[in-house]
Design a protein around this nucleic acid. Structure first.
Lengths: 148, 148
DNA sequence: ATGAAAACCTAGTAATGTGGTTGGAATTGA
DNA sequence: TCAATTCCAACCACATTACTAGGTTTTCAT
């Protein structure tokens, strides 16, 4: 029951983009080195994010990535579902479930359903903007106690 | 972000034990064939469940497994945490987290924490008894519409 | 124009985890 | 005593993960 690196790296990188939203877009190698990730690997992740319209890119020298829309309109759920697939604990409660002939009569399925709904309700309620604001709070708190 | 078969099979099997709580214990091969699972594989799962005290066993011919305590006192969370490990979406919010030098200052960590808490709150709120009662409800509903 | 820097793309690959199987030993009721 | 069952340890094939490698394309700066 663990997320893969795709979801983890992807969210972290998107959060970085959101943090520097006003200050112009960022090339990928900067994000990669900030987060100590492989640039090539992060590229693959961003390729997916771009194709679903969560980020935009500018090609060529001085090329960059940027959020495709305001970070208040991007939720953690948007990102994770793209990178991890349907956020369901078992396949029989995914959106594209074709299997599971027992369907409704299965009580364990109800349990999985509750887990799924709970997970999605959390990740859909957190936007990148929420995270940015939280970050600013933390920085402020640290500064007021003398930093570090 | 999927459960492994261990968690899925384990919960289903424990649910079977709970369903037949009054009617005496059940040998593993019965459960295995009911759920169409490998008996040997299920044994490995029950070995773990026994060692943590969720089930008891009787050895020898006519050997059986039974719940170690009343099914109202066993939650889905009890079972899943044993079979899947800490139900956290990433390692940095597991109980035995030794890594993650950033610790408190990390906003994404707060997101993972919320996911973890949400998941655990769901699975800890459902007991095997709840599932048994739900099953009885379903059966009753089916019967009253003419069965099948 | 040209070179460098970046996005973009595809294939391969080592390590790890998953989901078992195999084959037995120990225990005990009939 | 034998058959049924729990118990145990090792092994194994396959899939997935988390990359790396090595390019192609695009575009800016000079």
């Amino acid at each position: 029951m663990k997320l893969s690196t795709r979801g983890r790296y992807g969210l972290k990188a998107m959060f970085q983009l959101a943090l520097h939203f006003g200050e112009g877009p960022i090339p990928l190698n900067v994000i990669a080195s900030q987060q100590e990730l492989s640039e090539n690997y992060l590229e693959q992740i961003f390729s997916v994010l771009r194709k679903v319209g969560l980020v935009k890119s500018v090609r060529g020298a001085q090329g960059v990535y940027m959020l495709a829309k305001h970070h208040k309109n991007i939720t953690v759920g948007n990102i994770l579902r793209v990178l991890e697939g349907d956020m369901a604990p078992v396949y029989c409660v995914t959106d594209d479930n074709s299997s599971c002939h027992r369907e409704e009569k299965c009580v364990t399925r109800l349990v999985w359903k509750k887990m799924k709904d709970s997970i999605n309700s959390v990740i859909d309620s957190i936007t990148l903007q929420d995270m940015v604001e939280e970050q600013k709070e933390i920085e402020k708190a640290n500064k007021s106690v003398g930093g570090f």
